[in-house]
Design a protein around this nucleic acid. Sequence first.
DNA 1: CCGAATCCGGCATGATACTG
DNA 2: CAGTATCATGCCGGATTCGG
Lengths: 219, 219
Amino acid sequence: MAKRSYDEYCGLAVALDLLGERWTMLILRELMMGPKRFTDLQVGLPGIGTGLLTQRLRELEDATVIEKAVLPPPAASTVYQLTADGEALRAPLLGLTRWGLRRMGTPTEGQTANVNLLAFAMAARFNPRSSPAADGIYELRLGDSTFQFTIADGDIQIQSGHAQHALAVITTDMATLIAINNGAATLNDALSDQTLTVEGDPAAIASLADAFELTPVDV
Amino acid sequence: MAKRSYDEYCGLAVALDLLGERWTMLILRELMMGPKRFTDLQVGLPGIGTGLLTQRLRELEDATVIEKAVLPPPAASTVYQLTADGEALRAPLLGLTRWGLRRMGTPTEGQTANVNLLAFAMAARFNPRSSPAADGIYELRLGDSTFQFTIADGDIQIQSGHAQHALAVITTDMATLIAINNGAATLNDALSDQTLTVEGDPAAIASLADAFELTPVDV
DNA sequence: CCGAATCCGGCATGATACTG
DNA sequence: CAGTATCATGCCGGATTCGG
């Protein structure tokens, strides 16, 4: 039984034949934050059935967009992770995410919001055409979770976990990030009432504000 | 009856709630080449039913991604065109297209290939990070069809129709573009057997080859 | 000829229960 | 934990029809 296809000699049609099915791009979003297990993916994608997740993972694996890997002992659990082909989707998917961000206000009743999604939203704000002044490694602490941002060469990478040699460590909470994201508060507001604090290079926050297209801050 | 939604506070999920349904992004691809009528869209999207096209157009219109416009007399036909919100999708969609291009070989039996799709594929090859040396307006003649490329500021626009003050006019045919796109031939090959010719600024072709990530040419 | 509504068979999806 | 099996539902694809 042949898969449904647009059957057009067009890059977009070919890409969508694989990525355009329901849930597929959101699975890749999850994996852009680092390797994940089957169950972790399920948690990050409320509403997907186990059967559909299995099918999507197999399609992506067959297309060499993701691959299975076995973590070293003692964990020894199998995880899914992006291949080089999958990594190449980071920029366009972040572009779509940037576009979607502008259409979001405050989370509505029933809308899932969690630290992972907010950290990802932050990463998507990064402007690939910003000056390289913001290049470097940063750590974001959001409630109990920690993320690492790596900015280099007009690209941004986000991983869950601690950063090794961060230029700056940013500590804040979900409510503050939501407010900054939808324009209800500025970075300056958050800095002055200490709902967002920065340790490390004080100049870093100014470069980041520029790269993330936030209102300029007083350093 | 509420529309199906991922219900996540995430830019990508919000974008896909609108754009992730079948055909939607391909409709936008069609409109990225200029305003089109209902029937022209149908022709460019083999397999879509009239009902589904109507529904998708309405969804996109309600979301202010596209809008209806009435052409001035004597044409006086209604066309669909991108709004500013829709234009903002150009870069991410071209990014997805670039990704898909690398997964295409020669057109398979039953796969639709036409001048519009090939011109679009060419536009998608453009590297937004290339040097501004290629900035300008170009005309591409492909069989009986003519397209205009406008390169400026790291963005490329493609429209069907003649260009006004083109730096160069490139004339070629579908077979040649397909071969160049999938690496079966180089630009140099095509230039030497005259299956691709350039009128105008001879330096333009070298800049274009760089911006489109083709093998360098001997000028 | 263009734009759109309706009907319907078939397939994709979502939810749940079950298994190694 | 990592899937497989099953089934009800609803979306999609194609044909037909209808008004401007």
